[in-house]
Nucleic acid binder design. Structure first.
Length: 507
RNA sequence: GCCCCGUUCGUCUAGCCCGGUCUAGGACACCUCUCUUUCAAGGAGGAAACAGGGGUUCGAAUCCCCUACGGGGUACCA
Protein backbone atom coordinates (compact mmCIF):
# COMPACT_ATOMS: atom_id res chain seq x y z
CA UNK A 1 0.00 0.00 0.00
CA UNK A 2 1.25 3.42 -0.95
CA UNK A 3 -0.59 6.51 0.24
CA UNK A 4 0.18 10.16 0.16
CA UNK A 5 -0.72 13.45 1.73
CA UNK A 6 -0.64 16.26 -0.79
CA UNK A 7 -1.23 19.66 0.75
CA UNK A 8 -1.03 22.96 -1.03
CA UNK A 9 1.32 25.45 0.65
CA UNK A 10 -1.15 28.31 0.60
CA UNK A 11 -1.01 28.85 4.33
CA UNK A 12 -0.93 26.84 7.52
CA UNK A 13 -2.35 23.37 7.45
CA UNK A 14 -5.65 23.33 9.23
CA UNK A 15 -6.95 20.73 11.60
CA UNK A 16 -8.99 18.99 8.89
CA UNK A 17 -5.84 18.59 6.85
CA UNK A 18 -4.12 17.11 9.86
CA UNK A 19 -6.88 14.54 10.11
CA UNK A 20 -6.56 13.63 6.43
CA UNK A 21 -2.83 13.20 6.92
CA UNK A 22 -3.46 11.15 10.04
CA UNK A 23 -5.83 8.71 8.35
CA UNK A 24 -3.34 8.22 5.54
CA UNK A 25 -0.54 7.71 8.02
CA UNK A 26 -2.49 5.21 10.11
CA UNK A 27 -3.30 3.13 7.07
CA UNK A 28 0.24 3.22 5.77
CA UNK A 29 1.64 2.07 9.08
CA UNK A 30 -1.02 -0.53 9.66
CA UNK A 31 -0.34 -2.13 6.31
CA UNK A 32 3.41 -1.61 6.46
CA UNK A 33 3.12 0.57 3.38
CA UNK A 34 4.75 3.77 2.23
CA UNK A 35 3.63 7.28 3.08
CA UNK A 36 4.57 10.15 0.80
CA UNK A 37 4.42 13.88 1.37
CA UNK A 38 3.91 15.81 -1.84
CA UNK A 39 3.72 19.56 -2.02
CA UNK A 40 1.14 20.73 -4.52
CA UNK A 41 2.44 24.20 -5.25
CA UNK A 42 1.18 24.61 -8.78
CA UNK A 43 -0.64 27.84 -8.11
CA UNK A 44 2.13 30.38 -7.96
CA UNK A 45 -0.25 33.18 -7.10
CA UNK A 46 -1.33 31.55 -3.88
CA UNK A 47 2.05 30.43 -2.64
CA UNK A 48 2.77 31.47 0.94
CA UNK A 49 6.32 31.34 2.18
CA UNK A 50 6.83 29.31 5.30
CA UNK A 51 3.76 27.20 4.68
CA UNK A 52 5.69 24.10 3.65
CA UNK A 53 7.89 24.30 6.73
CA UNK A 54 4.81 24.80 8.84
CA UNK A 55 3.13 21.72 7.40
CA UNK A 56 6.14 19.55 8.12
CA UNK A 57 6.62 20.93 11.60
CA UNK A 58 2.96 20.51 12.46
CA UNK A 59 2.79 16.93 11.29
CA UNK A 60 6.06 16.08 12.98
CA UNK A 61 4.70 17.50 16.21
CA UNK A 62 1.68 15.22 15.83
CA UNK A 63 3.93 12.23 15.37
CA UNK A 64 2.98 11.83 11.71
CA UNK A 65 6.08 10.91 9.75
CA UNK A 66 6.77 10.30 6.09
CA UNK A 67 8.83 7.78 4.18
CA UNK A 68 9.26 10.10 1.24
CA UNK A 69 8.94 13.82 0.81
CA UNK A 70 10.74 17.05 0.07
CA UNK A 71 12.27 17.04 3.55
CA UNK A 72 13.49 13.44 3.52
CA UNK A 73 13.97 12.72 -0.16
CA UNK A 74 13.10 9.43 -1.80
CA UNK A 75 13.09 7.50 -5.06
CA UNK A 76 10.41 9.65 -6.70
CA UNK A 77 11.98 13.05 -6.06
CA UNK A 78 11.35 15.87 -6.55
CA UNK A 79 8.30 16.02 -4.31
CA UNK A 80 7.36 19.60 -5.05
CA UNK A 81 5.13 19.84 -8.09
CA UNK A 82 6.61 23.15 -9.13
CA UNK A 83 9.87 21.26 -9.66
CA UNK A 84 8.17 18.67 -11.83
CA UNK A 85 6.70 21.14 -14.28
CA UNK A 86 8.26 19.59 -17.37
CA UNK A 87 6.83 16.17 -16.59
CA UNK A 88 3.26 17.39 -16.63
CA UNK A 89 3.65 19.35 -19.84
CA UNK A 90 4.90 16.24 -21.57
CA UNK A 91 1.95 14.17 -20.39
CA UNK A 92 -0.50 16.91 -21.30
CA UNK A 93 0.80 17.01 -24.85
CA UNK A 94 0.64 13.27 -25.04
CA UNK A 95 -3.04 13.49 -24.21
CA UNK A 96 -3.50 15.94 -27.09
CA UNK A 97 -1.74 13.54 -29.45
CA UNK A 98 -3.97 10.73 -28.32
CA UNK A 99 -7.11 12.78 -28.88
CA UNK A 100 -8.05 13.14 -25.21
CA UNK A 101 -7.22 16.82 -24.98
CA UNK A 102 -6.91 19.93 -27.10
CA UNK A 103 -5.36 23.38 -27.17
CA UNK A 104 -7.49 26.36 -26.25
CA UNK A 105 -6.63 30.00 -26.88
CA UNK A 106 -9.50 31.83 -25.25
CA UNK A 107 -8.27 34.64 -23.07
CA UNK A 108 -9.43 35.33 -19.55
CA UNK A 109 -11.44 38.26 -20.88
CA UNK A 110 -13.11 36.22 -23.59
CA UNK A 111 -14.13 33.58 -21.11
CA UNK A 112 -15.47 36.18 -18.75
CA UNK A 113 -17.42 37.82 -21.57
CA UNK A 114 -18.89 34.45 -22.45
CA UNK A 115 -19.97 33.86 -18.86
CA UNK A 116 -21.67 37.24 -18.77
CA UNK A 117 -23.42 36.64 -22.05
CA UNK A 118 -24.76 33.29 -20.96
CA UNK A 119 -25.87 34.72 -17.66
CA UNK A 120 -27.61 37.62 -19.36
CA UNK A 121 -29.46 35.20 -21.58
CA UNK A 122 -30.84 33.64 -18.42
CA UNK A 123 -29.24 30.30 -19.06
CA UNK A 124 -27.45 28.29 -16.43
CA UNK A 125 -23.80 28.97 -15.71
CA UNK A 126 -21.41 28.79 -18.62
CA UNK A 127 -19.50 25.59 -18.97
CA UNK A 128 -16.68 24.93 -21.42
CA UNK A 129 -18.03 21.61 -22.58
CA UNK A 130 -19.01 19.36 -25.46
CA UNK A 131 -21.45 21.87 -26.93
CA UNK A 132 -19.88 25.22 -26.08
CA UNK A 133 -16.35 24.28 -27.08
CA UNK A 134 -17.40 24.43 -30.70
CA UNK A 135 -17.99 28.17 -30.33
CA UNK A 136 -14.67 28.89 -28.66
CA UNK A 137 -11.15 29.43 -29.95
CA UNK A 138 -9.40 26.10 -29.77
CA UNK A 139 -7.68 23.46 -31.84
CA UNK A 140 -11.04 21.83 -32.48
CA UNK A 141 -12.56 24.88 -34.13
CA UNK A 142 -9.61 26.69 -35.68
CA UNK A 143 -7.92 25.64 -38.92
CA UNK A 144 -4.72 23.63 -38.35
CA UNK A 145 -2.44 26.34 -39.73
CA UNK A 146 -3.89 28.92 -37.40
CA UNK A 147 -3.52 26.55 -34.48
CA UNK A 148 0.14 26.08 -35.36
CA UNK A 149 0.56 29.80 -35.63
CA UNK A 150 -1.11 30.53 -32.31
CA UNK A 151 0.83 27.80 -30.50
CA UNK A 152 4.02 29.54 -31.54
CA UNK A 153 2.96 33.05 -30.81
CA UNK A 154 0.55 33.14 -27.91
CA UNK A 155 -0.25 31.55 -24.58
CA UNK A 156 -2.57 28.60 -24.59
CA UNK A 157 -4.00 26.03 -22.22
CA UNK A 158 -4.61 22.35 -22.71
CA UNK A 159 -8.13 21.23 -21.94
CA UNK A 160 -9.44 17.74 -21.39
CA UNK A 161 -11.80 16.61 -24.14
CA UNK A 162 -14.68 15.36 -22.04
CA UNK A 163 -16.27 12.45 -23.89
CA UNK A 164 -19.98 12.64 -24.65
CA UNK A 165 -22.71 10.44 -23.32
CA UNK A 166 -20.81 8.43 -20.82
CA UNK A 167 -21.66 7.33 -17.34
CA UNK A 168 -18.54 7.31 -15.18
CA UNK A 169 -18.79 4.92 -12.29
CA UNK A 170 -16.23 4.35 -9.61
CA UNK A 171 -16.11 2.62 -6.27
CA UNK A 172 -15.40 4.74 -3.25
CA UNK A 173 -14.06 2.78 -0.29
CA UNK A 174 -16.20 4.78 2.08
CA UNK A 175 -19.28 5.59 0.01
CA UNK A 176 -19.64 2.63 -2.30
CA UNK A 177 -20.48 3.09 -5.98
CA UNK A 178 -20.74 6.66 -7.15
CA UNK A 179 -21.60 7.70 -10.66
CA UNK A 180 -21.58 10.86 -12.75
CA UNK A 181 -22.67 11.55 -16.29
CA UNK A 182 -20.11 13.24 -18.52
CA UNK A 183 -22.87 15.60 -19.62
CA UNK A 184 -22.45 17.40 -16.30
CA UNK A 185 -18.70 17.64 -16.61
CA UNK A 186 -16.75 20.33 -18.41
CA UNK A 187 -13.50 20.40 -20.36
CA UNK A 188 -11.24 21.12 -17.43
CA UNK A 189 -7.97 22.89 -18.00
CA UNK A 190 -5.12 20.43 -17.48
CA UNK A 191 -2.19 22.65 -18.31
CA UNK A 192 -2.36 26.34 -17.53
CA UNK A 193 -1.03 29.08 -19.76
CA UNK A 194 1.95 29.53 -17.47
CA UNK A 195 2.93 25.95 -18.20
CA UNK A 196 1.93 24.68 -14.79
CA UNK A 197 -0.51 21.82 -14.47
CA UNK A 198 -3.79 22.13 -12.63
CA UNK A 199 -4.47 19.91 -9.65
CA UNK A 200 -6.23 17.31 -11.77
CA UNK A 201 -3.36 16.59 -14.12
CA UNK A 202 -0.57 16.88 -11.59
CA UNK A 203 -2.39 14.71 -9.13
CA UNK A 204 -3.11 11.87 -11.51
CA UNK A 205 0.35 11.94 -13.08
CA UNK A 206 2.13 11.99 -9.74
CA UNK A 207 -0.04 9.38 -8.10
CA UNK A 208 0.72 7.12 -11.03
CA UNK A 209 4.43 7.87 -11.14
CA UNK A 210 4.79 7.50 -7.39
CA UNK A 211 2.90 4.22 -7.31
CA UNK A 212 0.11 5.46 -5.08
CA UNK A 213 -2.41 2.68 -4.48
CA UNK A 214 -4.97 4.49 -2.31
CA UNK A 215 -6.09 8.06 -2.75
CA UNK A 216 -7.51 9.14 0.59
CA UNK A 217 -8.63 12.75 0.59
CA UNK A 218 -11.42 15.08 1.65
CA UNK A 219 -14.93 14.85 0.28
CA UNK A 220 -14.51 18.11 -1.59
CA UNK A 221 -12.71 16.06 -4.24
CA UNK A 222 -15.55 13.69 -4.89
CA UNK A 223 -17.05 15.75 -7.74
CA UNK A 224 -13.76 15.85 -9.63
CA UNK A 225 -13.05 12.18 -9.25
CA UNK A 226 -14.83 11.24 -12.50
CA UNK A 227 -12.37 13.48 -14.34
CA UNK A 228 -9.52 11.72 -12.60
CA UNK A 229 -10.99 8.34 -13.48
CA UNK A 230 -11.18 9.38 -17.12
CA UNK A 231 -7.59 10.62 -17.00
CA UNK A 232 -6.40 7.22 -15.79
CA UNK A 233 -8.33 5.71 -18.65
CA UNK A 234 -6.89 8.15 -21.17
CA UNK A 235 -3.35 7.37 -20.08
CA UNK A 236 -4.10 3.68 -19.88
CA UNK A 237 -2.96 3.54 -16.28
CA UNK A 238 -4.23 1.39 -13.48
CA UNK A 239 -6.48 3.33 -11.16
CA UNK A 240 -5.80 3.62 -7.45
CA UNK A 241 -8.56 3.01 -4.94
CA UNK A 242 -10.42 6.10 -3.81
CA UNK A 243 -11.69 7.01 -0.38
CA UNK A 244 -13.35 10.36 0.25
CA UNK A 245 -13.34 11.41 3.86
CA UNK A 246 -16.27 13.24 5.46
CA UNK A 247 -15.55 16.89 6.04
CA UNK A 248 -14.88 18.56 9.37
CA UNK A 249 -17.71 21.00 9.95
CA UNK A 250 -17.96 24.13 12.04
CA UNK A 251 -19.63 23.56 15.43
CA UNK A 252 -22.42 25.95 14.46
CA UNK A 253 -23.21 23.94 11.37
CA UNK A 254 -22.30 26.73 9.00
CA UNK A 255 -20.24 24.77 6.54
CA UNK A 256 -16.87 23.16 6.53
CA UNK A 257 -14.14 24.19 8.88
CA UNK A 258 -11.80 26.47 6.99
CA UNK A 259 -8.59 28.35 7.51
CA UNK A 260 -10.46 31.60 7.46
CA UNK A 261 -12.30 30.56 10.61
CA UNK A 262 -9.08 31.28 12.48
CA UNK A 263 -9.93 31.81 16.11
CA UNK A 264 -13.41 33.18 15.38
CA UNK A 265 -14.96 29.97 16.62
CA UNK A 266 -13.42 30.19 20.06
CA UNK A 267 -10.85 27.50 19.48
CA UNK A 268 -7.81 27.06 17.25
CA UNK A 269 -8.20 25.61 13.78
CA UNK A 270 -4.47 25.17 13.37
CA UNK A 271 -2.14 22.67 15.00
CA UNK A 272 0.56 25.27 15.65
CA UNK A 273 0.53 29.01 15.99
CA UNK A 274 0.70 30.80 12.66
CA UNK A 275 1.64 34.32 11.83
CA UNK A 276 0.59 35.42 8.39
CA UNK A 277 3.66 36.81 6.59
CA UNK A 278 1.61 39.38 4.69
CA UNK A 279 -1.02 40.63 7.09
CA UNK A 280 0.91 39.87 10.27
CA UNK A 281 -2.27 38.36 11.64
CA UNK A 282 -1.71 35.67 14.26
CA UNK A 283 -3.75 32.54 14.79
CA UNK A 284 -3.37 30.30 17.78
CA UNK A 285 -2.48 26.64 17.61
CA UNK A 286 -3.24 23.55 19.63
CA UNK A 287 0.35 23.21 20.70
CA UNK A 288 0.47 26.70 22.17
CA UNK A 289 -2.90 26.25 23.81
CA UNK A 290 -1.33 23.48 25.81
CA UNK A 291 -2.59 20.40 24.03
CA UNK A 292 -0.53 17.26 23.94
CA UNK A 293 0.00 15.95 20.41
CA UNK A 294 -1.40 12.59 21.48
CA UNK A 295 -4.56 14.34 22.63
CA UNK A 296 -5.02 16.17 19.35
CA UNK A 297 -4.34 13.04 17.34
CA UNK A 298 -6.68 10.95 19.46
CA UNK A 299 -9.54 13.41 19.14
CA UNK A 300 -9.04 13.92 15.43
CA UNK A 301 -9.03 10.18 14.85
CA UNK A 302 -12.48 10.00 16.41
CA UNK A 303 -13.98 12.67 14.17
CA UNK A 304 -15.35 10.52 11.42
CA UNK A 305 -14.05 7.16 12.52
CA UNK A 306 -15.21 4.78 15.21
CA UNK A 307 -13.38 1.71 16.48
CA UNK A 308 -15.03 -1.69 16.48
CA UNK A 309 -15.28 -1.59 20.26
CA UNK A 310 -16.70 1.31 22.24
CA UNK A 311 -13.41 2.80 23.21
CA UNK A 312 -12.20 6.37 22.91
CA UNK A 313 -8.74 6.61 24.37
CA UNK A 314 -5.93 5.62 22.07
CA UNK A 315 -2.24 6.11 21.65
CA UNK A 316 -0.88 6.41 18.13
CA UNK A 317 0.24 2.79 18.24
CA UNK A 318 -3.23 1.68 19.27
CA UNK A 319 -4.80 3.77 16.52
CA UNK A 320 -2.58 2.12 13.94
CA UNK A 321 -3.72 -1.23 15.23
CA UNK A 322 -7.43 -0.37 15.34
CA UNK A 323 -7.90 1.86 12.30
CA UNK A 324 -9.70 0.79 9.16
CA UNK A 325 -11.40 2.61 6.30
CA UNK A 326 -14.50 0.45 6.64
CA UNK A 327 -15.27 2.15 9.92
CA UNK A 328 -15.01 5.70 8.61
CA UNK A 329 -18.38 7.41 8.55
CA UNK A 330 -19.96 9.17 5.60
CA UNK A 331 -21.45 12.25 7.17
CA UNK A 332 -19.51 15.38 8.05
CA UNK A 333 -18.46 15.78 11.67
CA UNK A 334 -18.80 18.91 13.70
CA UNK A 335 -15.79 19.88 15.72
CA UNK A 336 -16.41 19.81 19.48
CA UNK A 337 -13.75 21.69 21.39
CA UNK A 338 -15.06 20.55 24.79
CA UNK A 339 -14.56 16.94 23.88
CA UNK A 340 -11.14 17.68 22.46
CA UNK A 341 -10.19 19.10 25.84
CA UNK A 342 -11.57 16.08 27.66
CA UNK A 343 -9.54 13.72 25.50
CA UNK A 344 -6.48 15.84 26.15
CA UNK A 345 -7.14 15.71 29.87
CA UNK A 346 -7.18 11.94 29.74
CA UNK A 347 -3.81 11.93 28.04
CA UNK A 348 -2.47 14.50 30.45
CA UNK A 349 -3.31 12.20 33.34
CA UNK A 350 -1.70 9.20 31.72
CA UNK A 351 1.43 10.83 30.36
CA UNK A 352 4.69 9.92 32.05
CA UNK A 353 6.02 12.88 34.02
CA UNK A 354 9.16 12.99 31.92
CA UNK A 355 7.06 13.83 28.86
CA UNK A 356 5.35 16.66 30.65
CA UNK A 357 8.39 18.10 32.36
CA UNK A 358 10.10 19.80 29.41
CA UNK A 359 6.94 21.54 28.25
CA UNK A 360 5.95 22.67 31.73
CA UNK A 361 9.49 23.85 32.36
CA UNK A 362 9.30 25.92 29.23
CA UNK A 363 6.00 27.47 30.28
CA UNK A 364 7.46 28.09 33.71
CA UNK A 365 10.36 29.98 32.20
CA UNK A 366 8.19 31.89 29.77
CA UNK A 367 6.20 33.22 32.67
CA UNK A 368 9.35 34.29 34.45
CA UNK A 369 8.61 32.20 37.51
CA UNK A 370 11.39 31.54 40.03
CA UNK A 371 13.52 28.54 39.11
CA UNK A 372 12.61 25.21 40.62
CA UNK A 373 14.31 21.85 40.59
CA UNK A 374 12.97 19.16 38.29
CA UNK A 375 12.12 17.14 41.36
CA UNK A 376 9.89 19.82 42.79
CA UNK A 377 8.37 20.60 39.41
CA UNK A 378 7.54 16.95 38.94
CA UNK A 379 5.73 16.94 42.26
CA UNK A 380 3.83 20.07 41.35
CA UNK A 381 2.75 18.54 38.06
CA UNK A 382 1.63 15.41 39.85
CA UNK A 383 -0.48 17.54 42.15
CA UNK A 384 -1.94 19.69 39.38
CA UNK A 385 -2.62 17.21 36.61
CA UNK A 386 -5.73 15.84 38.30
CA UNK A 387 -7.45 19.14 37.77
CA UNK A 388 -6.13 20.26 34.41
CA UNK A 389 -7.05 19.61 30.79
CA UNK A 390 -4.45 21.84 29.20
CA UNK A 391 -0.80 22.38 30.03
CA UNK A 392 -1.10 26.01 31.22
CA UNK A 393 -3.71 24.91 33.74
CA UNK A 394 -1.00 22.85 35.35
CA UNK A 395 0.77 26.04 36.28
CA UNK A 396 -2.39 27.85 37.30
CA UNK A 397 -3.22 25.02 39.66
CA UNK A 398 -0.03 25.47 41.67
CA UNK A 399 -0.13 29.24 41.84
CA UNK A 400 0.22 28.96 45.62
CA UNK A 401 3.76 27.79 45.06
CA UNK A 402 5.04 30.89 43.34
CA UNK A 403 2.63 33.52 44.53
CA UNK A 404 1.82 34.56 48.09
CA UNK A 405 -1.80 35.36 48.84
CA UNK A 406 -2.86 38.95 48.28
CA UNK A 407 -3.69 40.31 51.70
CA UNK A 408 -6.05 41.42 52.91
CA UNK A 409 -8.28 38.92 51.18
CA UNK A 410 -10.96 40.11 48.82
CA UNK A 411 -14.45 40.31 50.20
CA UNK A 412 -16.15 37.10 49.17
CA UNK A 413 -13.13 35.17 50.40
CA UNK A 414 -12.50 37.12 53.60
CA UNK A 415 -15.99 36.24 54.78
CA UNK A 416 -15.05 32.60 54.81
CA UNK A 417 -12.32 32.99 57.38
CA UNK A 418 -13.14 31.44 60.72
CA UNK A 419 -12.49 33.75 63.64
CA UNK A 420 -11.90 30.92 66.08
CA UNK A 421 -9.16 29.49 63.93
CA UNK A 422 -7.49 32.85 63.50
CA UNK A 423 -7.38 33.34 67.25
CA UNK A 424 -5.63 30.00 67.60
CA UNK A 425 -3.11 30.53 64.82
CA UNK A 426 -0.17 30.74 67.23
CA UNK A 427 -1.13 27.33 68.54
CA UNK A 428 -1.17 25.89 65.05
CA UNK A 429 2.23 27.35 64.40
CA UNK A 430 3.57 25.79 67.53
CA UNK A 431 2.02 22.50 66.54
CA UNK A 432 3.85 22.53 63.21
CA UNK A 433 7.11 23.63 64.74
CA UNK A 434 7.14 20.60 66.97
CA UNK A 435 6.71 18.19 64.08
CA UNK A 436 9.38 15.53 63.59
CA UNK A 437 9.33 15.43 59.80
CA UNK A 438 7.64 17.81 57.34
CA UNK A 439 5.54 15.38 55.32
CA UNK A 440 1.94 15.51 54.23
CA UNK A 441 0.69 12.41 56.08
CA UNK A 442 2.24 13.52 59.34
CA UNK A 443 0.96 17.06 58.93
CA UNK A 444 -2.47 15.67 58.32
CA UNK A 445 -2.36 13.44 61.38
CA UNK A 446 -1.11 16.21 63.64
CA UNK A 447 -3.62 18.75 62.46
CA UNK A 448 -6.54 16.35 62.70
CA UNK A 449 -5.54 15.39 66.20
CA UNK A 450 -5.36 19.01 67.23
CA UNK A 451 -8.67 19.96 65.61
CA UNK A 452 -10.33 17.07 67.39
CA UNK A 453 -8.83 17.99 70.74
CA UNK A 454 -9.93 21.55 70.32
CA UNK A 455 -13.38 20.51 69.17
CA UNK A 456 -13.25 22.72 66.08
CA UNK A 457 -15.13 22.18 62.82
CA UNK A 458 -12.71 20.46 60.43
CA UNK A 459 -14.07 22.10 57.30
CA UNK A 460 -13.77 25.60 58.70
CA UNK A 461 -10.28 25.04 59.96
CA UNK A 462 -9.03 23.73 56.66
CA UNK A 463 -10.73 26.38 54.59
CA UNK A 464 -9.29 29.12 56.79
CA UNK A 465 -5.84 27.63 56.62
CA UNK A 466 -6.15 27.24 52.87
CA UNK A 467 -7.08 30.89 52.51
CA UNK A 468 -4.22 31.95 54.73
CA UNK A 469 -1.68 29.86 52.87
CA UNK A 470 -2.92 30.15 49.29
CA UNK A 471 -5.42 32.96 49.12
CA UNK A 472 -7.72 30.63 47.20
CA UNK A 473 -10.67 28.61 48.35
CA UNK A 474 -10.13 25.64 46.06
CA UNK A 475 -7.16 23.61 44.96
CA UNK A 476 -5.03 20.59 45.69
CA UNK A 477 -4.83 18.83 49.03
CA UNK A 478 -3.86 21.29 51.73
CA UNK A 479 -1.40 18.87 53.31
CA UNK A 480 0.38 18.41 50.03
CA UNK A 481 0.47 22.17 49.65
CA UNK A 482 2.04 22.57 53.05
CA UNK A 483 4.60 19.92 52.37
CA UNK A 484 5.61 21.55 49.09
CA UNK A 485 5.70 25.00 50.64
CA UNK A 486 7.98 23.82 53.44
CA UNK A 487 7.93 24.62 57.14
CA UNK A 488 9.56 28.02 56.80
CA UNK A 489 7.25 29.33 54.10
CA UNK A 490 4.15 28.04 55.89
CA UNK A 491 5.24 29.74 59.05
CA UNK A 492 6.03 32.95 57.20
CA UNK A 493 2.68 33.02 55.47
CA UNK A 494 0.89 32.50 58.74
CA UNK A 495 2.85 35.28 60.38
CA UNK A 496 2.34 37.62 57.49
CA UNK A 497 -1.37 36.98 57.71
CA UNK A 498 -1.37 37.75 61.40
CA UNK A 499 0.44 40.99 60.82
CA UNK A 500 -1.98 42.14 58.18
CA UNK A 501 -4.97 41.09 60.21
CA UNK A 502 -3.58 42.60 63.40
CA UNK A 503 -3.45 39.43 65.42
CA UNK A 504 -0.88 39.69 68.22
CA UNK A 505 2.08 37.37 67.94
CA UNK A 506 2.75 34.80 70.57
CA UNK A 507 0.08 33.29 72.81
C1' G B 1 -29.78 26.86 -10.87
C1' C B 2 -27.49 22.12 -11.98
C1' C B 3 -24.67 17.72 -10.26
C1' C B 4 -22.90 14.68 -6.28
C1' C B 5 -22.71 13.10 -1.16
C1' G B 6 -25.10 12.81 3.35
C1' U B 7 -29.23 12.73 7.52
C1' U B 8 -29.66 8.08 14.88
C1' C B 9 -29.60 12.02 21.69
C1' G B 10 -27.23 19.43 21.81
C1' U B 11 -22.25 17.14 19.86
C1' C B 12 -19.05 12.68 18.30
C1' U B 13 -21.06 8.10 17.35
C1' A B 14 -22.74 2.19 17.93
C1' G B 15 -26.42 -0.45 15.45
C1' C B 16 -27.73 -0.35 9.11
C1' C B 17 -24.26 -4.04 4.38
C1' C B 18 -26.43 -9.73 6.44
C1' G B 19 -34.54 -6.76 8.54
C1' G B 20 -36.75 -9.49 14.51
C1' U B 21 -31.77 -10.03 19.94
C1' C B 22 -33.27 -1.97 19.82
C1' U B 23 -38.28 -0.85 25.82
C1' A B 24 -31.91 2.15 20.13
C1' G B 25 -25.83 1.23 23.24
C1' G B 26 -21.32 4.29 24.49
C1' A B 27 -18.75 9.06 25.07
C1' C B 28 -18.51 14.67 25.71
C1' A B 29 -21.54 18.46 27.66
C1' C B 30 -25.82 19.05 31.14
C1' C B 31 -28.68 17.67 35.85
C1' U B 32 -29.02 14.76 40.63
C1' C B 33 -26.74 11.91 44.28
C1' U B 34 -22.15 9.98 46.37
C1' C B 35 -16.96 10.32 47.95
C1' U B 36 -14.15 14.53 49.81
C1' U B 37 -11.47 20.06 53.95
C1' U B 38 -12.26 22.69 48.86
C1' C B 39 -11.99 22.42 43.44
C1' A B 40 -11.20 18.65 40.33
C1' A B 41 -10.93 13.45 39.48
C1' G B 42 -13.70 8.96 40.74
C1' G B 43 -18.44 6.14 41.60
C1' A B 44 -23.98 5.79 40.95
C1' G B 45 -28.18 7.59 38.48
C1' G B 46 -31.12 10.97 35.14
C1' A B 47 -32.81 13.73 30.97
C1' A B 48 -31.83 13.38 25.73
C1' A B 49 -32.20 10.71 19.06
C1' C B 50 -33.87 6.63 14.45
C1' A B 51 -35.66 14.14 9.60
C1' G B 52 -40.88 13.52 7.38
C1' G B 53 -44.08 10.69 4.20
C1' G B 54 -45.08 6.54 1.35
C1' G B 55 -44.08 1.55 0.14
C1' U B 56 -41.96 -3.89 0.68
C1' U B 57 -42.59 -7.39 4.80
C1' C B 58 -45.76 -11.28 9.70
C1' G B 59 -42.03 -7.61 11.29
C1' A B 60 -37.87 -1.73 9.34
C1' A B 61 -33.35 2.61 12.61
C1' U B 62 -32.03 -1.34 9.22
C1' C B 63 -34.46 -2.64 2.15
C1' C B 64 -36.94 0.73 -1.95
C1' C B 65 -39.13 5.55 -3.52
C1' C B 66 -40.38 10.69 -2.73
C1' U B 67 -39.91 15.18 0.01
C1' A B 68 -37.35 18.24 3.37
C1' C B 69 -32.94 19.69 5.40
C1' G B 70 -27.49 19.81 5.66
C1' G B 71 -22.85 19.63 3.15
C1' G B 72 -19.66 19.61 -1.12
C1' G B 73 -18.74 20.83 -6.24
C1' U B 74 -19.74 23.85 -10.35
C1' A B 75 -12.11 28.52 -11.69
C1' C B 76 -6.04 28.88 -16.18
C1' C B 77 -7.64 27.32 -6.65
C1' A B 78 -6.29 23.27 -4.50
Amino acid sequence: MVVRFAPSPTGPLHIGGVRTALYNYLLARKHKGRFILRIEDTDQTRYVSGAEEYIIEALTWCGITFDEGPHVGGPHAPYRQSERKAIYAEYAHELVRRGWAYYAFDTEEELEAMRQKVKAAGMEAFQYDAVTRMYMKNSLTLPPQEVEERLRSQPYVIRFLMPRGREVRFYDEIRGWVSFHTRELDDKVLLKSDGMPTYHLANVVDDHLMGVTHVIRGEEWLPSTPLHVLLYEAFGWEMPKFAHLPLLLRPDGGGKLSKRDGDQLGFPVFPLRWKDPHTGEESSGYRERGFLPEGVVNYLALLGWHPAEDRELFTMEELIEAFSLERVSKAGARFDYEKAKWINQQHLRRAPIERLLPRVEQLWRERGLPPVSQLVLARLIELARERASLLPELIEAVRFFYERPALPLKEPLAEKLHGGVIALLPEIEALFQGISSWEAPLLEAKLKEWVKARGLPMGKVLLTLRLILTGEEAGPSLYAIMELLGAREVSQRIQRFQEVYGVPRGV
